[in-house]
Design a protein around this nucleic acid. Structure first.
Length: 303
DNA sequence: AGTTCGACCTCTTTGC
DNA sequence: TGCAAAGA
DNA sequence: GTCGAAC
């Protein structure tokens, strides 16, 4: 599940491998993946050079010479690599771009095919990736902008964090981790968060995402960067994937809930996270059970 | 306006 | 062990 | 992970 930190890690790995180099040809492109645009890929990619590689939210924008951008979304299982052309081709390789010498190629692999490959000219960009479709990048959004976005919706704060049109880059893992560190109950109404709580949230978004980038992202299952390396931020997760384990801050069992935001599993600590935001520096681990038996949590009702 | 649910895919894990 | 269903 | 239809 590549989210902003994983995508940023991929982009940083790709830059030194691709910038300045030339695409010899588009060797393979799967119509399963791009439909009728397959002919565009075959015809338009060859001969162009890599000028710039950017990221906005979970999207990667590969800027090529001659006003063409290859936009890539990794979906759930998408994966980009630059490897030796002799290297065996894995199943589900949907795009192969041979690089100048022909010794290496850039490959896009995506078993579930939830990813996206899009070719766009600068005039296509605003309609496909404009502010209407993609919110500010989560690492660049300002406090006033975040306040504004949260204030004008009655939605649950977690669903706003997940909304790529509100703010781009956060997915299920980082939404849960961020809300834990900000001390906010995921089901809290966005427009009811006090100013100081929103300020704390803004700082937390930045802090957690940066920490995760420094760790090379989180590898829960499949994710690997462009060098095939796994991330390590999963070792620093406090709630995601820690259901029933004691909260590292208060000792109470981390909860897993499917109702707060439907379709997404939500991990949180009801001892540390409230609809009103952080309580204060808590009585540390007061409820902690060192022997592992989970503290019972009084199931809280949303309000 | 906001939430729920199923769909889109394939591989892996789970459960009887 | 094996296969279907659930999960990611 | 993301979309759109239905409630």
């Amino acid at each position: 599940m590549p989210e902003l930190p994983e995508v940023e890690t991929v982009v940083r790995g790709l830059r030194p491998k691709l910038l300045g180099r030339v695409i010899q040809a588009c060797v393979t492109v799967s119509p399963l993946m791009v439909g009728k645009a397959a002919s565009d890929f075959r015809l338009k990619l060859g001969g162009r050079s890599f000028e710039q590689i950017d990221r906005h939210g979970k999207w990667i924008f590969v800027r090529l010479s001659g006003d063409l951008t290859l936009a890539i979304h990794l979906g759930m299982t998408g994966n980009l690599r630059v490897e030796d052309a002799m290297h065996g081709i894995e199943p589900h390789t949907h795009l192969r771009l041979s690089l100048e010498s022909g010794r290496q190629e850039c490959r896009f692999i995506d078993p579930r095919r939830f990813g996206e490959l899009v070719l766009a000219t600068s005039s296509d960009m605003p309609t496909r990736f404009g502010p209407k479709q993609l919110g500010k990048d989560a690492l660049l959004i300002t406090l006033p902008e975040l306040k504004e976005t949260l204030a004008r919706t009655k939605r649950r704060v977690k669903s706003v964090l997940l909304d790529q049109r509100a703010l781009a880059g956060i997915g299920n893992i980082y939404a849960d981790e961020i809300l834990f560190h900000a001390g906010i109950y995921p089901g809290a109404r966005a427009d009811r968060l006090a100013d100081e709580v929103v300020e704390k949230l803004a700082r937390t978004i930045t802090r957690i995402l940066k920490r995760a980038i420094n760790a090379g992202g989180s590898t829960i299952r499949d994710y690997v960067d462009s060098d095939g390396k796994r991330g390590s931020y999963q070792n620093q997760h406090d709630v995601y994937g820690r259901a029933d384990q004691p909260c590292r801050r208060c000792g109470q069992a981390v909860e897993l809930d499917q109702k707060i935001v439907t379709g997404r599993s939500t991990h949180f600590c009801s001892g540390c996270q409230t609809a009103g935001g952080p309580k204060r520096r808590l009585n540390r681990r007061s409820n902690h059970r060192p022997n592992g038996q989970a503290a019972t949590n009084p199931r809280r009702n949303d309000r």
